[in-house]
Design a binder for these strands. Structure first.
Length: 561
RNA sequence: UGGGGGAUCUGCUAAUGGUAGGCGAGGUGACUCUGGAUCACCGGGUCCAGGUUCGAAUCCUGGUCCCCCAGCCA
């Protein structure tokens, strides 16, 4: 750490001070997910923050599963979360932990609390406890069981563990203050009886510790120095500190809260996402439209882009909504730098170049990535019959349209200038084919007579084209705040997925592997679907479209009328 | 309404008593064999009202608005 180092956010400020004052020699932080679901696009903020802090300040970051509710958790989620964290590019090394590994110690700490007269077994029902808790404005009342003797509490708690009492019949509560203005301090429940098989401890336990008791102790046991969590735990902090003060733990971690990451046009509520799946709006947790990391990965969002985004949004305590365009920008920026270019015609229109010799094939040289010359070049076959994009031809083009139209010229990318001589239509008047001529002197981007050809379009040789399915993905919702409306399903973007089955790819794309990504020139970034793509029946997903200035101009013209 | 937090361009975020800056979005232009990319430029902000100070986004006082908390979830 250099002296010139500036804290990037208030948490770094705290850490730098703790390091400078010698409060800590080394920092230890943790990412503590509950394995009860998939990680979503908001989680990387916490992951990058914690692992990033460890990297930056030479400390370490633990991955700890906060698995104290056996009814919701499973090993599948553990594996999914590990995969996602790794995918993002972070390594917890040896430091993989489970709160469930601390159950025995947690139990001993509970005994300690009881012995100190700071915890008691309560026979009130869940409903009674709620009633006794009071409200935001009225103090709670003390349970009639609150003043049991230490001996009786010890006996009862041991028998809770031994399974002598039915589920829900008793709990262990901290004895703090039923009149506290902080609801969390009104004798919070520490342990509940729950006969559920835990995915790791099986049926060894029938009592399970609560978060507020488990978390501070787990942190202390692991030597966590800074326990970073989200804003909603702010008023749990007094309880976090209370536990650490009253139990003989080896150290005293500090809880620090920050604002979670949320995006416009996105929901992350598990309940709501599940509904989208169950009602068929999307195809599952890894549907490329889903805000899960599994979905983002399948969509083609890169870990580099997501990490870059986390750097850019910063860390603060203000609840905020990041414009999803920021994520899209980061994805484009990363892929622009790294994605090989290719030509792919999504909605093909056949073009016959009448003055080009039948049977002749030329190999034209194309640049793999103008941003990175080291990626080299490739050859693309050109022949008499090609496909171009339907939208690159208009019979009656508006002002400003640079592409093909009857009698007009356009340049084929890396190829010749062609001119549209004739439009062939079917019985219904649809354009089905174009007859063109080419100018043999225009190869290599030149026009010997100096005439300007503004339009450049992509194309694929018909005889050499590789067929593929292309799935055009777009934002899942049409409104900025789908998380805030009741009937969010009414705002699912009907065009969030458009499937194109008759796409034509340049032949170099025949041998792609799942997960490979490309820029289809003039269109966007696409990746080979990791689930459905097979050799011979390729499936590409559009990760994000290229910025489209022409579309913007058109939209503006439409608005003007 | 008790308690805990938060308010800086349209969005995110910096400036910790000393020139309100960056990124994204939007707009304009240059350039270009991707209407891409790149580059340049433009507009635009300290929640309000007082106070302290040579000087306030920052400190003080009083308001306003927003978020979180009444699980045997985390």
């Amino acid at each position: 750490m250099s002296e010139a180092m500036q804290p990037a956010n208030f948490i770094e400020g705290i850490i730098m001070e703790d390091l400078e004052t010698g409060k800590h020699k080394q920092i230890v932080v943790r990412f503590p997910p509950e394995p009860n679901g998939y990680l979503h696009i908001g989680h990387p903020k916490a992951i990058c923050l914690n692992f990033g802090l460890a990297e930056k300040f030479g400390g370490r970051c633990h991955l700890r599963f906060d698995d104290t509710d056996p009814e919701k958790e499973s090993i599948e989620y553990v594996e999914a979360i590990k995969r996602d964290v790794k995918w993002l590019g972070f390594d917890w090394g040896e430091h993989l932990y489970f709160a469930s590994d601390y159950f025995e110690q947690l139990y001993e700490y509970a005994i300690e609390l009881i012995k100190k007269g700071l915890a008691y077994v309560d026979d009130l029902s869940a409903e009674e406890i709620r009633e006794y808790r009071g409200t935001l404005t009225e103090p709670g009342r003390e349970s009639p069981y609150r003043n049991r003797s230490v001996e009786e509490n010890l006996d009862l708690f041991q028998r809770m563990r031994a399974g002598e009492f039915p589920d829900g019949s008793k709990v262990l509560r901290a004895k703090i203050d039923m009149a506290s203005p902080n609801m969390n301090m009104r004798d919070p429940v520490l342990y509940r009886i729950k006969r559920a098989t835990h995915y790791r401890t099986g049926d060894e336990w029938c009592i399970y510790p609560m978060y507020d008791f488990t978390h501070p102790i787990s942190d202390a046991l692991e030597g966590i120095t800074h326990s970073i969590c989200t804003l909603e735990f702010e008023d749990h902090r007094p309880l976090y500190d209370w536990v650490l003060e009253n139990v003989s733990v080896p150290c005293r971690p500090q809880q620090i809260e920050f604002a979670r990451l949320t995006f416009s046009y996105t929901i992350t509520s598990k309940r709501r996402l599940l509904r989208l799946i169950e009602e068929g709006y999307v195809d599952g947790w890894d549907d490329p439209r889903m805000p899960t990391l599994a979905g983002a990965r399948r969509r083609g969002f890169t870990p580099e882009a997501i990490r870059d985004l986390c750097d850019r949004v910063g860390v603060a305590k203000k609840n905020s909504v990041v414009d999803i365009a920021m994520l899209e920008h980061c994805v484009r920026e990363d892929l622009n730098r790294r994605a090989p270019r290719a030509m792919a015609v999504l909605r093909p229109l056949k073009v016959v170049i009448e003055n080009y010799p039948e049977g002749q094939v030329e190999e034209l040289e194309a640049i793999n990535n103008p941003e990175d010359p080291s990626m080299g070049t490739r050859k693309i076959p050109f022949s008499r019959e090609i496909f171009i994009e339907q939208e690159d031809f208009m019979e009656d083009p508006p002002k400003g349209y640079r592409r093909l139209a009857p009698g007009r010229e356009v340049r084929l990318r890396y190829g010749y200038v062609i001119k549209c001589e004739e439009v062939i239509k079917d019985d219904e008047g649809n354009v089905v084919e174009l007859r063109c001529t080419y100018d043999p002197n225009t190869l290599g981007g030149v026009t010997p007579d100096g005439r300007k050809v503004r339009g450049i379009i992509h194309w694929v040789s018909a005889a050499h084209a590789v067929p593929a399915e292309v799935r055009l993905y777009d934002r899942l919702f049409t409104i900025e705040n789908p998380g805030e409306v009741e009937d969010f399903w009414n705002y699912v973007n009907p065009e969030s997925l458009v499937v194109l089955k008759d796409c034509k790819l340049e032949p170099s794309l025949a041998e792609v592997e799942p997960g490979d990504f490309f820029q289809f020139e003039r269109q966007g970034y696409f990746c080979v679907d990791i689930v459905d793509s097979k050799p011979g029946s390729l499936v590409f997903n559009r990760t994000v479209a290229l910025r489209d200035t022409w579309a913007k101009i058109q939209k503006r013209q439409e608005k003007k009328g």
